[in-house]
Design a protein around this nucleic acid. Sequence first.
DNA 1: TCAATCCGTATC
DNA 2: ATACGGATTGAC
Length: 659
Amino acid sequence: MTRPRPAPRVAAAVDPVARVMVDVPLPHLDRPFDYLVAAEFDEQVQAGSRVRVRFAGRLVDGYVLDRRPSSEHANALAFLDRPIGVQPVLTDETAALFRAVADRYAGSFVDVARLGVPPRHARTEAAPPTVEVARTARTVHSGWDRYHAGGAFMAAVGAARPARAVWSALPGEDWPARIAEVIQTALAAGRGAVAIVPDGRDLARVDAALLRLLGDGRHVALSAELGPAERYRRWLAVRRGVVQAVVGTRAAGYAPVVNPGVLIIWDDGDDLHREPRAPYPDARDVLVLRSSLTGAALLVGGYARTAEAQLLLESGWAHEITADRGTLRAVAPRVVAAGDDVEQARDPAARAARLPSLAWRAAGKALADGQPVLVQVPRRGYVPSLACVRDRTPARCATCAGPLAMGSAQAIASCRWCGRPAGGWACPTCAGRKMRALVVGAGRTAEELGRAFPGTLVRTSGRDQVLDTVDGRPALVVSTPGAEPVAEGGYGAALLLDGWAMLARPDLRAGEEALRRWLNAAALVCPGGQVVVVADAGIPVVQALVRWDPAGSASRELAERSELGFPPAVRMAALSGRPDAVLDFVQAAELPAPHEMIGPVPTAPSPTGGDSESVRMLIRVPREDGARLATALRAAAAGRSARKATELVKIVLDPAELF
DNA sequence: TCAATCCGTATC
DNA sequence: ATACGGATTGAC
């Protein structure tokens, strides 16, 4: 009985070898493997194509890096199984970027490619490309001449020079319009552009600004919220060079724009820029790497300034775009710090609303002047919810040290992590036995404010329902950080009520993050309007808000991080997992000298239910050894996976949360 | 003497 | 991961 034999395959005549990155989760296989391309697939298998290959006996997905005339591999090559679709997805430039990001974060190429390449949608890929008719662009006067070096940066982008800048936006700045102007300048120079913003609301604003400036069809907005078909359709338009400008959320930092001339990130301190999937890259770093690799210009902008952006400046890698003090004074709100004098407030309504009297008066005046008032309150759950009524020591669980909270229908506080009721609590500092709500949610604040200002319209913007804009009529707009609506004509006043609560967070970045949120809210206030921040005026970041000095604050922050030995002044890696696995890992790793090991410490039990057996270890090296540290960690991970150590160790470079 | 099993190694 | 080869073990 003769079995039907498959027809013998013939390799392509030219460049028969494809170098393929295979999609397997093992770190030691993060390198190219060579396959033969059958003649029948010659056209479909190109540099950047998705393919299916037989690897260790199984069919797996892969990406073709390039085609070559021959292989270095000593043994016979296998034929690759088949191409997936006809559309190459990587460009030489994005392939190099995926490699660089993987190397920076001790991760693998395919992990990063998964972040940067959207899932294929076959029908969309096959559909004829929609013909976009570009409307004539509108010319407007650039708003960049209010800034030192603003015009120079625009000129550099227009001349396709690789300028790199950190931009401190003026309060009230129409930053989406400024970003649109930069993008328009890059397009006019025949180059592409990528702009990254934290969330969908900012994305919509930049999208609208681009539509106004460029007309239809010159750009696309990319975000994860689009359905798979629409997301792939827009992404394909970029990959095919139909559009050259992209605005999007963090994954759009990898968009395969042809010949990018400028890369932009807005509000780089927002934690939404950090990817929560391995290898946990940050969008600012992705753009910095991409700028270095391609020579594209880079713009890091925001009202606030991060220590990381400050380092770009102090290392001389980037230049500053700022306005002078006179220009700033003309547009800035007046900012005062109010100690939390709730108890002394004369007005009973103010007392009931937990408002310091200064804040209450500022709000009343703005409302009387016919203007809206912004009230920023922290998100519920952002900080421990109960504290000692006398000295505000956060109330913690006696068993697991988790934060205590008051349940909805319970009379007794209980732990939010372990759920145990906290009967008989006593303050560890003053032995007081009374707790009070440290932070009141937006809903409750809105209720109380409504009573404090009878007859005033109260609106809320937060997690569940985010308002994009409010009109210029008098109203109290209660919002959580990041959800503040833009007010027509600007707010008459802003009350930042969460000051000390925000600063009380046991986090390395608490100060920087508090200032960032305050500046973002205060920037929405009209020139000369009143901002009241409820915090101790002696705290440096409170001073930085009062003087509107994000640069000075970032400089101080960076100096402090240098002194304490924290990123970005040094490079750190956090290794977490079961104790034996973490120990085994660090023993196997050939870490660059000098290095410092901190820990291991047990990781805090969390409501998300992480392994209670888990520990975390920090490794610290000088900044210039960052690449070597990542290489060593990758090698250690490869060694472990090669010898079948299955216990997972999570590697995070420069973790955002250090405590 | 042969099969079952363990361990190490390569995966193109 | 998974597949394979070579060494090792154990039973006839």
